[in-house]
Amino acid sequence: MNGVIMASYFTVASLLSIGLYGVMTKRNLMKIFISLSIMDTGVNLMLITIGYLPGGTAPIENANFAKYVDPLPQALVLTAIVIGVSVTALALVLLIKYHSKKGTLEYKGGMKW
């Protein structure tokens, strides 16, 4: 397997697992949203890595290269990045509201059924 691909798949799996672990164990809401941001980054890298072709070049018309990487995942990731930042902005506004009502960022409620 190509070294770059291996490195980036390793990064993807680690970032996603770290983020998931943070979401599940942390009680601080800011920490939870930081973890979710890390997961977002991981997914973006995953899409790009799936589209990568060893030896390929960026999908911009170029006379010197014959092989290009898959352009579609890159377009999807552009979308995903912007969606990520919009969700994060709204989340942080909600956190500010929560803090102004409760005076803390710790989430005590848990999952009550």
Binding site: P59, I60, E61, Y68, P71, L78
Partner: peptide, 8 residues
């Protein structure tokens, strides 16, 4: 020329 732009 930029394929990604064309897709987006």
């Amino acid at each position: 020329i930029n394929v990604v732009t064309a897709i987006v």
